[in-house]
Design a protein around this nucleic acid. Structure first.
Lengths: 337, 337
DNA sequence: CGCCATTGATGAAACGATTCAAGTAGGTTC
DNA sequence: GAACCTACTTGAATCGTTTCATCAATGGCG
């Protein structure tokens, strides 16, 4: 069943070494020989065995990316950026989903380590530190994605989430809104904590009411919808006039719950709504959602760049930390009205 | 850098064969020896090299899944179903995205073939036939996903899209709508063709006006929005009172464009809207969208089941073809009003 | 004509895990 | 005590590719 170089060599009337040369350094082989070998490959339907190649080479040319939620378009966009960039370096991207579970994350990391991937791009769960340390101890390059590492020895690419939270808050404050809620969770996620912290700082500085924090079990549509039920009452009661969501999935869920039913509230008249990530669905909502945009493609591609650079460093060299600044995209959901 | 069985064996004072036995058939090894070997593994931080294992084994335990659009939640849900099922068989799922491009699809297939994956689940592009044939000729099991193969020699799992299109059309016909449009494309995709055919058949049988077909360059939000601009005028002119979208991304884009601006139309009063796939965002739209639900998880998990069964068949055995029936989920966007 | 440089091809060694026939030690039975 | 089991362990062979020192052939040059 398996066609190997040996059979190709035999059919072409050359040695296995020559077949390998044809495949990997054709410039050292006589054109006519190349032709003969290619004919044999064609005739036999030979396909190179990556396992053997990789065994000899010591490591693969694959890069792994583990994200928190494949269902979130934000991460699929990051993945797209990373994949394109990886292809540019002649590498393949392996995509995995941790679903915010440290257990699944660890399982994927183990699998990738056995595969001897040339590096791992990780959007870490809250409890990732230990796994990451173990991985690095074994010499696997790691780049943290969507998270500035406090640890200077780990390369990272992130967006300034504190600044993003601040942007969102300042935008609604500028419209005279003073009863601002922040919705998101779990607070163990750095993204959530930082965005919340930024918003809180802005609110404090403006002297508005304290930030109302609504915790959710995850960053999903459902979680947003559920929180929206509670917040609708507050908006009607006049105790809340602006809502900042930790991401767009939450924001979309919120919007649905806020507008729904006979006691629905108006957006932005009764309450302003600001999301985070600027995924395509945010702009497509019927009340298009103002959102804090992150350079999704750039995050992915830069992560790959850092990883490739990482491969050429020794363990003690300084690591690079790229921090992008987010950008506010204003839409109808918060348009001064 | 690389710790191998050899070093583990040395430290534990046993042979490499014994280390392998500890890893793969612990029941044949004395408990005390097992313990010693595990200690050595721990001490050295040994991680098995999958490339070597796989080289020896002849094939990997990985299953590949290639989807048309990673940005479409429908496919990520299918992937999730497949991944869980694969884990159940002790296999790993490799996820790849063809972006509806036959070229990218072929590149992924080549890569997977070099990796000697144990099988491929493929949501095929329009021009996949040739690549698939080549792959199967080399003995790689293939299961077509989201597409009933006319070819009885290829296993497949699909949803009856003709029936789905019919369901959608009959639903709006039952409300007395008679000027029905179908929006989607490119028509080279079977999903689009079949859904359209089903709708057309239902319209014919009911004696309503001929189905208005609006072609789009892809099944995306943007495409839907663009088509919506055109359709809004028709709705206002009274030449269209129901729209069936080829998938939910299109439907969401449509809804946005239909409702937008001063000359926006009302849903469902002026026009009914029906989507396809029933992704989470469809229910979350502010006018929640009626949609044809496909059993996304089941599609993924069944595909894996078929693939595993495939591995035990000879080339000439009959293939299994699973066809699920879709189900209409009625929401406000088409609620009789 | 003999020597050297160049070009092209060779084949054995290596990568790391698994397998399996063969071996050893210890115990049981008659 | 010889013959036979049982329970473990061993070590060489194997998978398919790449690498590299070595070899053969060719042509140029003095």
């Amino acid at each position: 069943m398996g066609v190997s170089v040996k059979q190709v060599a035999q059919l072409a009337g050359v040695s296995v070494g020559t077949v390998s040369n044809v495949l990997n350094r054709p410039d050292t082989v006589r054109p006519e020989t190349i032709h003969r070998v290619h004919d044999a490959i064609e005739a036999l339907g030979y396909v190179r065995n990556d396992a053997a190649r990789q065994l000899r080479a010591g490591q693969s040319n694959q890069i792994a990316l583990i994200v928190l939620d494949m269902g979130n378009p934000f991460f699929t966009d990051v993945a797209r950026g990373a994949e394109d960039r990886a292809a540019h370096y002649g590498r393949t991207l392996l995509l995995a989903n941790s679903d915010e579970s440290a257990t699944r994350e660890a399982a994927h990391l183990d699998q990738f380590e056995r595969q001897r991937v040339s590096g791992v791009l990780l959007v870490p769960t809250a409890d990732a530190a230990e796994h990451v340390a173990r991985l690095r101890a074994r010499g696997v390059p790691v780049v943290l994605v969507d998270r500035g590492s406090g640890d200077h020895t780990i390369a990272s690419v992130a967006v300034d989430d504190v600044s993003g939270g601040r942007l969102a808050a300042m935008h609604v404050l500028a419209q005279g809104r003073e009863r601002i809620a922040f919705v998101g969770g779990p607070s163990s996620l750095h993204q959530v904590r930082d965005r919340c912290a930024g918003a809180r700082a802005a609110v404090r500085e403006a002297g508005a009411d304290d930030l109302i924090v609504v915790d959710t079990p995850g960053l999903t549509l459902d979680a947003g919808r559920e929180a929206g039920e509670r917040l609708r009452a507050m908006v009607r009661a006049g105790t809340c006039d602006a809502i900042l969501a930790a991401n767009d999935l939450i924001a979309i869920g919120l919007q649905q719950a806020l507008l729904a039913g006979p006691d629905g509230v108006r957006i932005p008249e009764d309450v302003a709504l600001v999301g985070y990530d600027d995924i395509a669905f945010a702009a497509a909502a019927v009340v298009p959602i103002t959102s804090v945009r992150q350079p999704r493609d750039a995050i992915g591609s830069t992560a790959v760049d850092l990883l490739v650079a990482e491969g050429e460093k020794s363990t003690n060299d300084a690591r690079q930390h790229v921090v992008y600044q987010p950008e506010l995209v204003v839409r109808a959901s918060s348009q001064p009205g």
